[in-house]
Amino acid sequence: MAINWYKYAAPASFYSLAGKMIPFFTIIAFGLLVAGLYIGFFVAPTDFQQGEAYRIIFIHVPAAWMSMFLYVVMAFWAGIGLAFNTRLSSMMATAIAPTGALFTFLALWTGSLWGKPMWGTWWVWDARLTSELILLFLYIGFMSLQAAIDDPRRADKAGAIIALVGVINIPIIYFSVQWWNTLHQGASVSVTQAPTMASTMLTGMMVMVFASWMYAIAVILKRVRVIILERESNTAWVAELRRKGAF
């Protein structure tokens, strides 16, 4: 029994730790979101070239950054889980994927919204948008693979391999798409390229970046908690929680 307790200690203690951290991050995320949107929509001046449409960057840029960053973080945790057989890190990777995919989708969606007034079309095969689309495919691949495997241990390991293969490939894909784009003389204006950015614009954007960060942490912790409960559902400590009516 002693050895069992040791094995389950990590997820069990993390479960309660995460429970304490979630409200904290949620509140900060909400506060930053309100502040960032306020700056973005009311304080920041109208751009003299792009008019009001540029304000989409307050959502688009943080989303695009998060989408790429989260993939790397996901691959990192998945890799740790594969190398050291630590189950919590694999659960972390699984929890990150949907949030990463959400931000990727958001970046695509806002990019396309921005494209309509700027380029006159909803979609342009711009290098960044295309890379973002491929990133979405990679997230979907990771999630579908894990969903197709019943055995959680195999799902963790298989997911880790595909995430690591993906992370090695991302620079290659990005570079290929850049090359392809210049070869085909596609759109020359890219979404994030603002000629001169007023300092309030930059502030608003950074606030929104931090808001996304905090939101991502809160949501991922919440999801990890659910995954822990699911995986440990037949252990003593979960039974104890259930008895107390903690969830």
Binding site: I134, F137, I140, G141, L145, G166, N169, I173, S176, V177
Partner: peptide
């Protein structure tokens, strides 16, 4: 789903 993005 897994392989096609890597083929790009």
């Amino acid at each position: 789903l897994l392989v096609l993005p890597l083929y790009i």
